[in-house]
C-alpha cells in the first residue's frame, strides 16, 4: 500500500468513528428524500418529469449544502493535526508531504462520495421508479447531478485543504472556511447580479458573464446541471444563461475538476515549504 492509500484509509476510518459519515449521509438522505417526495407537489401533474423537478431542487440544495460539508471536513486537515501534535510524528515517517495532503483529500472525498451516492441515489431511485415514464434523459441528468455534486464537493475539499496549510491556528481556518463559503455560495452571485444590473448590458456581453461564472465552482456546478437538458433549463430559469454561454458539459466538468486540482496543488506546494 502506498502512503496515500494508508493515510486515506485512516482518514476515512476517523470519519466513521467521529460519526461524520453517518451524520452527512443522513442529512443528505433526509433532505433529498423530502425534496423528492414533496418537491413535485407544487407542479401538480404536468408533463414535466418528476425526476427532472427533483434534479432542479436537489442541485439548488447541493450548492448550499455540499460546499459547507466539504469545507467543514477539510478546513483543519493540516492545521488541526499540527495543533493536536499528531502531524509532527507523522512527518518523521517515510512519507512525503504531498502524500499526506493527497491521502487526506482522498479519504475526505470517499466520505463525501459515499454520503452523496447513498443520500441522492436513494432519493433518485425512489422518485424515478415511482413516476412512470421517466426518460433516459432524466436518468442521465440525475447521474450527472450526483457525479458533479461530488466534483463540487472535491473542489471545496481542496479549498479547505489550502486554507488549512495557509493559517497557523485552527480558529482562523474555521473563520476563513466560513468566509469562503459565504463568498462562493452567496456573495459572488450577488456581486455578479449587481454588476449586470448596473451595467444594463452595455459592456458586459453574455460570454464575459459566463467566463466570470467560471471563477466560482458553485456557478460552474449550476451551469453544468441546470442547463443540462432543455427541460431542466426551462424549469430552472437558466435557459438563457445556458444558451448564451454555449459551454459544453465536458468543459464545465473539466473546469470543476480544475477547481480541485489547482487549490490542492497549491496546498501541497505551500506545505512542502513549511518548516515545523
Amino acid at each position: 500500500m502506498t502512503p496515500v492509500v494508508i493515510i486515506a484509509r485512516k482518514e476515512f476510518q476517523r470519519c466513521v468513528r467521529n460519526r461524520w459519515i453517518v451524520a452527512t449521509t443522513l442529512l443528505m438522505l433526509a433532505l433529498s428524500m423530502s425534496l423528492a417526495l414533496l418537491g413535485s407537489a407544487p407542479m401538480g401533474t404536468v408533463a414535466t418529469g418528476r425526476l427532472s423537478i427533483t434534479i432542479v431542487s436537489l442541485s439548488s440544495l447541493t450548492i448550499f449544502l455540499v460546499p459547507l460539508i466539504a469545507l467543514m471536513l477539510s478546513f483543519d486537515t493540516v492545521v488541526g493535526d499540527t495543533e493536536n501534535g499528531t502531524l509532527f510524528l507523522l512527518l518523521t515517517y517515510p512519507v512525503q508531504r504531498w502524500q499526506i495532503i493527497a491521502g487526506k483529500f482522498v479519504g475526505h472525498t470517499a466520505v463525501l462520495s459515499l454520503a452523496t451516492i447513498i443520500g441522492y441515489g436513494t432519493a433518485g431511485l425512489a422518485v424515478g421508479l415511482m413516476a412512470e415514464g421517466t426518460g433516459i434523459d432524466a436518468w442521465t441528468a440525475f447521474a450527472t447531478m450526483s457525479g458533479s455534486s461530488v466534483l463540487l464537493g472535491m473542489a471545496f475539499l481542496a479549498i479547505g485543504c489550502l486554507i488549512s496549510v495557509l493559517v497557523k491556528e485552527r480558529g482562523t481556518a474555521a473563520g476563513l472556511a466560513v468566509a469562503m463559503w459565504l463568498i462562493f455560495v452567496l456573495l459572488f452571485d450577488m456581486g455578479l447580479l449587481g454588476l449586470l444590473v448596473a451595467d444594463k448590458g452595455a459592456t458586459l456581453k453574455a460570454g464575459t458573464v459566463t467566463a466570470l461564472m467560471m471563477l466560482n465552482p458553485a456557478d460552474v456546478y449550476r451551469m453544468l446541471n441546470l442547463t443540462g437538458s432543455s427541460e431542466i433549463a426551462a424549469l430552472s430559469g437558466m435557459a438563457t444563461v445556458g444558451k448564451a454561454g454555449q459551454v459544453s458539459q465536458q468543459l464545465l466538468a473539466a473546469i470543476l475538476v480544475a477547481w480541485s486540482v489547482i487549490p490542492l496543488t497549491l496546498a501541497m506546494l505551500v506545505f512542502r515549504r513549511r518548516e515545523l
Partner: peptide
C-alpha cells in the same frame, strides 16, 4: 525511530 515529547495520537483509534 522517534518519540516526541508528550506524544499524541488520533484519539478515536
Amino acid at each position: 525511530g522517534f518519540l516526541p515529547e508528550s506524544v499524541m495520537f488520533e484519539a478515536t483509534m
